[in-house]
Nucleic acid binder design. Structure first.
Lengths: 126, 126
DNA sequence: TATATCGGTATACTAGAGTATAGCAAAAAC
DNA sequence: GTTTTTGCTATACTCTAGTATACCGATATA
């Protein structure tokens, strides 16, 4: 048995809290359709059917569900206009924009990571 | 029909590429155990059993699987020492540390988001 | 001989995320 | 009438992430 030892880690609460906070953010933006939806709303307000047309292959069920979650997290605002048939608009809130910094960092890292890893055939080239 | 219209969004390729890059990052760090593992490796090298002890309730199967993924993404390095029984050490790579900026932003946002949302009873208080 | 340790793998299961399809109410256009 | 539009919901399914449990070979320890 070789004496390999070094930094025999006490593991602090800190790390668990860190993980929780990161996971909270993760929960808000993960799911197959949240990013496409937020992406589509960058260009301004959109109605339900517009979002559907904008996001290929999304089902009404998923669009509805994800919009509801985004709304609960206050990233998206839903406005109902009393027309017939009902007009309902979705838009990114200012708070939703507070995520931009996070998303920007993730985009930067993801971009370079793809370049780095793609050569070894790990990521789907698409 | 009320003429509600404004920013009739042409939707660019840009947004899809953005979503892809963010998702690449998401794929690397999501999964139930990746953050706890990276957290445990902050304190230095660890052996398999040490990680198991450090991360309550993780199964050998998941630990092994997640470590393999982290290794494929070059965030973690696996070193085999020719002892008996074999000694195997895992450690965060310098490249793994390049994620720190992203994780920091996610932690910051997640922390304030929990404070913001918890009052409305959306997040599990834990 | 039996048991423990190390670093896992194999097999089978469960639960949750996502899909597919049909339908609804109310009015408008044909 | 019948069909179309809007913004969804209900039901049933599939597929994948994660869990539970047992086991492996080699060696050391009792």
């Amino acid at each position: 048995m070789i004496p390999i030892k070094q930094g025999q880690g006490e593991h602090h609460v800190c790390s668990a809290e860190f993980a929780m906070a990161v996971r909270d953010t993760l929960d808000v933006i993960s799911g197959k359709w949240k990013l496409p939806i937020l992406g589509s709303l960058i260009n301004g307000k959109k109605r339900f059917k517009e979002l559907q047309k904008d996001i290929p292959r999304i089902t009404a069920r998923m669009l509805s569900k994800e919009l509801r979650e985004l709304e609960m997290n206050q990233l998206v605002k839903r406005t109902v206009y009393d027309t017939i048939p009902a007009t309902i608009e979705y838009e990114k809130t200012p708070y939703g924009c507070s995520l931009d910094k996070v998303l920007f960092e993730m985009k930067e890292w993801g971009t370079q990571h793809r370049k780095r890893i793609i050569h070894k055939g790990k990521l789907k080239a698409e």
